[in-house]
Design a protein around this nucleic acid. Sequence first.
DNA 1: TATTTAACTTTGAAAAACAAAGCACTTTTA
DNA 2: TAAAAGTGCTTTGTTTTTCAAAGTTAAATA
Lengths: 98, 98
Amino acid sequence: MKNPIADLNKIFDSRIRLGVMSVLVVNNEIGFNDLKQMLELTDGNLASHLNTLEQAEFIKVHKGFIGRKTSTTYSITDLGKQAFKAHLDALEKMIKKL
Amino acid sequence: MKNPIADLNKIFDSRIRLGVMSVLVVNNEIGFNDLKQMLELTDGNLASHLNTLEQAEFIKVHKGFIGRKTSTTYSITDLGKQAFKAHLDALEKMIKKL
DNA sequence: TATTTAACTTTGAAAAACAAAGCACTTTTA
DNA sequence: TAAAAGTGCTTTGTTTTTCAAAGTTAAATA
């Protein structure tokens, strides 16, 4: 039998990063605070996970304004979509023996 | 929108423990060394993850013999089946928006 | 002007993961 | 029969990851 966990992406071992990605798959853009509230995280914790995802180029940041107020939003990249899908496929293959 | 990660089980954040469970779901009994080779782990690493799963009562240990050679095998408990299923359901709900 | 909000960064502590070595026991091999 | 090897751990210590809390900068509001 083949190693069932070899194809899982290390970046998605984290429930938080998994959550961010799952939100971004269905929302093409979401704000920092919305994410923070949705996932019930502290600023620093969310920011650092977002940073990890950005480093991997799985998400993109958009800094802009709502009126004259700054607003930061995040969206998934094509690479991110690919990697997330690959991870989910690996997960599914792993448990599809059910 | 509700927190999508709240229902994930912390114990299954680990790819290794996830792998162990996925193997145990389809094999009603598996040996230490088989798991070790399948998941490509060192003894200590596997043993400690197995210990975590045992503490949670998600798996059971069986110490016996194959011929005259000692053999330790592991199997999933009912609680383990339940918890694993619940985790997979939570995962699925999280991503079923796809 | 003082306070609040947004979106961080920095700091430091706690937890988790992990490899390597040691160990007790048995079995196989030379 | 002595040495080597395998099983299934435990112990030790390092590295990595996670996280909260506090600090920060700039703009907005009271």
